[in-house]
Design a protein around this nucleic acid. Structure first.
Lengths: 137, 137
DNA sequence: CTTCCTAATAGGAATGATTACGATTCATAA
DNA sequence: TTATGAATCGTAATCATTCCTATTAGGAAG
């Protein structure tokens, strides 16, 4: 996801171009990894001291609903990152130290043989956890 | 996991046979699904009014560490269930309404072709979410 | 450029899940 | 039966997240 795509999606949804959203998008563009609201607040306070968690969480939720960000839960905390490639389904290896990810193009739903009669499938989650090469060293 | 196995593991680890632990194990044995601490407290208060969350969370953590229970995170809350079959790796379909599970014997780690050079793999998560036949009806 | 309307934000309080802690009770081994 | 430390109770504290209200600021319209 590029920054232009993000702005296009935002304007298509009548959402305004604010300083906070600029900083937030830049942050995700430059940090190709999962971040928590706390980390984001620390970063954003450089640009805007006094920014509130309400602003951060509200924008994170909005962006996630619009598909600009993607979200996962790691050790009890919500983590967010830029949505890699709109429309292309994939999964992630996630570094448990720095939050960096590696794409996994395979989807287990295409590979497993089980069938679940009368079950309504709503979604699935597949993630591999560990240390990225840098954090492992 | 049978109740006898659970008690054996507990005694092997010098953990005492308390009324709370009996009620907790019975509860999980009779409820083949994921439960939250809150649900567990509601159930256990019938047997022991005034039981505290400290007791519940401490025992849930202990049991999970010992492999008696297994844990997952669903919509921001920790959920626990009896560990199905010690030693046999598998995954779950989880009903998002009632928490009931269906075993999925396949593991994506055996099926995917990706290799992650220099990555230290610590674990993985694969879950399918949806409605079980009863809740779908 | 100015005005106006509403979305967006700040600041802080409230919530809900989970954890911590001191005092007390209980399981069990001797 | 008693002693000892584990387990529990009751409650306070913590942490992430959400809610609320007054204020600010995009940006459309004039």
């Amino acid at each position: 996801m590029t920054i232009e795509e993000a702005w296009r999606i935002l304007s298509e949804n009548q959402l305004k171009r604010t300083k906070n959203r600029e900083v937030l998008l830049d942050l995700f563009l430059e940090n190709d990894r999962y971040l928590t609201a706390g980390m984001i607040k620390d970063f954003m306070e450089n640009e805007n001291p006094g920014i509130s968690f309400d602003t951060i969480y509200r924008n994170l939720s909005t962006f996630t609903e619009l598909g600009i960000l993607e979200e996962t839960e790691l050790s009890g905390e919500r983590h967010f990152r830029m949505h890699c490639d709109a429309g292309v389904h994939h999964h992630h290896f996630i570094c448990t130290t720095c939050g960096k990810t590696q794409n996994i193009p395979d989807c287990p739903m295409d590979l497993i043989s089980i069938n679940l009669p009368n079950h309504e499938i709503e979604g699935h989650k597949f993630e591999i956890y560990g240390k990225c090469p840098l954090c492992a060293a």
